[in-house]
Amino acid sequence: MSGHAAPEPAPLYEVVRESLRADEPVALATVTEGPHVGAKLVVRPGAAVLGTLGDPELDRVVARDTLAELDVGLTSTRHYGRHGEAREREVTVFIESFAPAPLMVIFGAVDFTAALVRVGKILGYRVTVCDARSVFATRARFPMADEVVNDWPDRYLEKVADRLGPRDAVCVLTHDAKFDVPAIVGAVATRVGYIGAMGSRRTHATRTDRLRAAGLDDAALARVMAPIGIDIGSRTPEETAVSICAEIIAHRAGVAVPNLRDGRGPIHRSGPPPG
């Protein structure tokens, strides 16, 4: 009558479950082929590694690789020697990352913002809208945002800098140098994976001068996708949001797409509006 027995003890599972419930990053490494099939490590940033794969050196190497995979949200299979040697295939380990939702920070509570919030939510981002102007940055205007913040971009970025990583995105939609410049300067100081800034080519040329004056070098400027988005002929805020999110996905995947940044000519083509 196994169906009426007490559940098997599952201490590692319970740690994974609690991390998932708290939306905290956790990864599980399982031996799927090799000497100790089923052996596991539970890895959490800043916490002791739990479990063992049956060899201390293998544990150390796999824990290190698992943390790196978790940082970028990757789930994959890796091969090792019995004692963690690289380029050997005695042990197959399945590394499963449970990363919390990636973050999308949108600066500027403008008409494009609401559409970008909606598309960002569809893609699974935790979305924050930040604008220093309290009249515009209201919950009522962005009901789907996880967070609406009244603050200056540089001050807000300083607070969340530690939380931004390769999977996250910063989108600067303010169109106003006094907000754009501190937002971009603040963003390039973080590890955030994607930085995009809205504005025409002319706007961006003058903005680039201000960014250089603020101390950004070529390498920092190269991280900024501006004009933001890929060239799909988008016109409405919703279409623009799709163009921006397509750029974010392609950027993360390392796939070449027609970025508006690398194009020439007007961003908005003439032609009939949709509908």
């Binding site: 196994s2 169906g3 009426h4 027995a5 007490a6 559940p7 098997e8 599952a10 994974v16 479950r17 998932l20 419930r21 799927t32 299979t77 399945f94 499963e96 449970f98």
Partner: peptide, 25 residues
């Protein structure tokens, strides 16, 4: 695994044993 946690918990609370199948490749 996130999406099946509630099912696992319900089954375990009812005394069921559970098997997990994951796509590894």
């Amino acid at each position: 695994m996130r999406e099946v946690l509630d099912d696992i918990e319900r089954w375990r609370a009812a005394g069921h044993r559970v098997a997990i199948a994951r796509v590894v490749g």
